[in-house]
Each structure stands twice: as C-alpha cells, then as structure tokens.
Amino acid sequence: MNDRNNNSLPSIPLAMTLVGQTVTFAGVRNAGRGLTHRLAEMGLMPGESLEIINRGPGPFIVAVKGSRFVLGRGMVNRILVRPE
C-alpha cells in the first residue's frame, strides 16, 4: 500500500488514456466518501491497476481484477490515473 501515495508521476484523467494501455488508479476528483468507498468495494481502489479495453462514444470499458467495468462519460474525466 506504500506505492499508492507515490506522487512521483503526475496523474492524468482517465479520458486521456488509450485503448490497450495499463494504468494505476490514483483517485477520483471531487468524490464524496460514498463514491470512493463504493468504488473500493468493487475493487477500484488507489494502487489498483486497470487496463483500458474499449472507449466508446463517451464511456470507457476497463478491466479491474478480472472484471469489466463501464465508467460513464462524466466519470472518465474525474478519475485520475498514472501511466505504468
């Protein structure tokens, strides 16, 4: 859990990543406690790596812990990731 607060690499919005890229989840901008917790319970927590499977017309499909998630258009601009 030590690398989760590693700020050596700048984080970028998920919206700026490309299909096929693998990135590390860093957090969500302007997220309330509830959202962060809900994401964590689904496996999306700081330090977790995620792979961009597909980007549709707005939303993204990402792979986390062997599952596929749809992240909506609003979310992909708020989720911050670090390229691996």
Binding site: L35, R68, F69, V70, L71, G72, G74, R78
Partner: peptide
C-alpha cells in the same frame, strides 16, 4: 443538478 457518476460491471 449535476450528472451522477456512472460505474457498472459489464458481465461476460
């Protein structure tokens, strides 16, 4: 109001 975050699992 603002749009709410959309996160959903995509089942196989």
């Amino acid at each position: 109001g603002e749009a709410t975050p959309f996160v959903m699992e995509l089942p196989p």
